[in-house]
C-alpha cells in the first residue's frame, strides 16, 4: 500500500520516459553467502594446512575429483528446477559404469559401448517419466524404487564384483590432460555450460522454472507440461549415464556397490545453489559453487587428518543446513513483504 502510493506520484508524470526502477530483490548478502563461504573455507584451510592445501597439485586434485559428481549434480538440478525429484541418477551412473566395464570385458567396440550406455540412461529416464508424469506418482518414491532396482541390476551385470575391465581407450581419453586438467573435467564443464545456457538464455529454462513454481498455472498458460517434465527427467538420467562413462574412465575399475556414496552430494550442491542468484530457484552456477564448496571442505578436513566418518556427517548436515538456510531467507523476505504491504 505504502509502496503503491509513493510510486503513483512519480509515475503519473513519466508517461514516455523510464519509470522509476527499484531493485526489489532480496539483499545481496544471502545471494553471495555460498560463494563467500567457498572463498572463506579455501583461505581457512590454506592457513590450517600450510604447504599442503593451497598447492597447484591439490587444487587440481580437488577439481579433477569432482568431474563425475559435477555432471551428476548438474543432472539432478534439471528436474529439481521443474519441480521433480530424480534420486535415481547416482544409480544410473553406477549402472552405466558397470555396463562399460562389463561390455569392455566382452570386448565390444568402444562406440557401441558408449551408445548403449547413453541409451540405457535415456531408457531409465523414460521409465521414470512413465510413472511420474504419466501416472502422476510421487517422483521421490518412484526414483527411490528405481535407485534400488538399478543397484540390483548393477550387481547382476558385474556379478557383484569390482570389475577392472574398463576399455583402455575410455581410460586414456578421460584422463588425457588438457591445460593441466583431465579431459573428464572439461567434459563435465561443457555439459554444465550447455545446461547453464539453456537455463539462463533459452525460453526452455524459464518454462522449467515456471513449471517448478506452479505446475497448474504453467499448464493453463499454455506450456507443454508433460513434455517438459519428461524432458527434464530424461535429461537427468542421460547425464547420469554420461557421469557413468566418466566414472568408469577416471577410476578404471567399477564397484557396483558404490552408488550410495554419490547419492547425497548432488542434491546438497543443488540445494546450496538455491540460495544464489534468485532465492529458491535451482540454477547451474549455484550447483557448481555448492559442489566445490563441499569438495574444498571435505578435502581440507582430510588433509588435516580428520577421520573418514566426518565426510558423511558433513555431507548430511550440509544438505539439511542448505534447505534450512534457503527457508530462513524465504521467511525473511516474506516478513519484508508483509511489512511493506499492510492493508
Amino acid at each position: 500500500m505504502a509502496e503503491t502510493q509513493t510510486v503513483t506520484a512519480s509515475n503519473e508524470s513519466s508517461g514516455s520516459g523510464d519509470p522509476p526502477q527499484k531493485d526489489v530483490r532480496e539483499s545481496v548478502l544471502p545471494q553471495i553467502a555460498i560463494p563467500l563461504l567457498l572463498v572463506a573455507s579455501f583461505v581457512l584451510f590454506s592457513f590450517l594446512a600450510p604447504g599442503l592445501f593451497f598447492t597447484g597439485t591439490n587444487v587440481r586434485i580437488i577439481i579433477a575429483s569432482q568431474a563425475t559428481l559435477l555432471v551428476l549434480a548438474v543432472g539432478a538440478t534439471i528436474p529439481l528446477r521443474a519441480g521433480d525429484f530424480d534420486l535415481s541418477i547416482a544409480a544410473v551412473m553406477v549402472l552405466s559404469a558397470s555396463l562399460v566395464a562389463a561390455m569392455g570385458n566382452m570386448g565390444w567396440p568402444l562406440a557401441v559401448i558408449v551408445l548403449a550406455v547413453l541409451a540405457t540412461g535415456v531408457l531409465v529416464g523414460l521409465i521414470n517419466s512413465f510413472f511420474i508424469v504419466g501416472l502422476e506418482l510421487s517422483g521421490f518414491v518412484v526414483t527411490l524404487g528405481m535407485l534400488t532396482l538399478l543397484a540390483g541390476i548393477s550387481n547382476l551385470v558385474t556379478g557383484g564384483e569390482t570389475l577392472a575391465t574398463v576399455p583402455v581407450e575410455i581410460r586414456d581419453l578421460t584422463n588425457t590432460r588438457v591445460l593441466g586438467l583431465p579431459l573428464a573435467v572439461w567434459i563435465g564443464w561443457v555439459f554444465a555450460a550447455v545446461v547453464l545456457v539453456v537455463f539462463q538464455r533459452l525460453p526452455l529454462g524459464r518454462y522449467l522454472l515456471f513449471l517448478g513454481g506452479n505446475p497448474t498455472a504453467a499448464q493453463l498458460a499454455g506450456l507443454r507440461v508433460k513434455r517438459l517434465r519428461t524432458g527434464a527427467l530424461v535429461s537427468s538420467s542421460f547425464l547420469g549415464a554420461v557421469a557413468g562413462v566418466l566414472l568408469a574412465g577416471t577410476l578404471g575399475a567399477v564397484d557396483p556397490g558404490s552408488g550410495g556414496g554419490y547419492l547425497l552430494a548432488p542434491f546438497t550442491a543443488a540445494f546450496l545453489g538455491t540460495t544464489m542468484l534468485h532465492l529458491r530457484q535451482f540454477n547451474v552456477l549455484g550447483t557448481l559453487i555448492g559442489l566445490y564448496l563441499l569438495a574444498v571442505v571435505i578435502t581440507g578436513l582430510q588433509l588435516l587428518g580428520v577421520a573418514v566418518w566426518v565426510a558423511d556427517v558433513f555431507n548430511g548436515a550440509a544438505l539439511v543446513l542448505a534447505i534450512a538456510f534457503a527457508r530462513v531467507l524465504e521467511l525473511r523476505s516474506q516478513r519484508n513483504i508483509r511489512r511493506t504491504t499492510t492493508t
Binding site: 522454472l209 515456471f210 513454481g213
Partner: peptide, 28 residues
C-alpha cells in the same frame, strides 16, 4: 492457483505465454 507463479517476478509471469517472441536465434 491457476494463473500465477507468485514467487516469480512480474516480468516472468507476464511473458511466459509468448516468451519465444523475445528470442533472437533461439536466445532470449
Amino acid at each position: 492457483r491457476d494463473a500465477l507463479w507468485t514467487a516469480g517476478t512480474a516480468q516472468e509471469n507476464l511473458t511466459i505465454s509468448f516468451l519465444s517472441q523475445f528470442t533472437h536465434s533461439r536466445l532470449l
